[in-house]
Amino acid sequence: MIMLAANFFWRGLPVDVVVPVGRQPKQKALDWLTGFCTENRRLLVYQIGEEWFAFGPTAFQTDIAGRLGRGETPWGD
């Protein structure tokens, strides 16, 4: 995985972006990362194949899904 730590902020919280090296991140690494984000009040956007996913509160997930639905990047260029 390639991790862009605090690539952007959402409502004052850092958002880490993870892109896999290969098709998808290994499940063990993804599990560790989501645990780390939970413990440290960080949000996460990650990619599996061509699809993006958001990890964090429901409002964050909805916002990221909306951006993607409008054809924007998850970080809202």
Rank of each mutant, 00 (worst) to 15 (best):
M1D: 12
M1N: 14
I2E: 11
M3V: 15
M3H: 11
M3W: 06
L4C: 10
L4N: 15
L4H: 13
L4K: 14
A6Q: 15
F9C: 06
W10H: 09
W10T: 00
W10M: 00
W10Q: 01
V15C: 04
V18D: 11
V19R: 15
P20K: 13
V21C: 01
Q24I: 09
Q24H: 14
P25A: 12
P25N: 13
P25C: 11
K26T: 09
K26N: 09
K28L: 06
K28T: 08
K28A: 12
K28C: 00
A29F: 12
A29Q: 13
L30W: 03
L30P: 05
W32G: 04
L33I: 09
L33A: 10
T34N: 04
F36Y: 15
T38F: 02
E39P: 02
N40M: 03
N40Y: 05
R42H: 13
L43K: 06
L43A: 03
L44N: 04
V45E: 09
Y46R: 03
Y46H: 13
Y46E: 07
Q47W: 05
Q47N: 11
Q47H: 07
I48N: 11
G49Q: 02
G49A: 02
G49F: 06
W52I: 02
F53S: 14
A54H: 03
F55H: 12
F55V: 06
F55L: 01
F55D: 12
F55E: 09
G56A: 01
G56K: 02
G56H: 02
G56T: 03
P57I: 01
P57C: 08
A59R: 12
A59V: 13
T62I: 14
D63I: 10
A65N: 08
G66T: 10
L68E: 00
G69N: 09
R70P: 00
R70W: 02
G71T: 06
G71F: 03
P74N: 05
W75F: 15
W75T: 07
G76V: 08
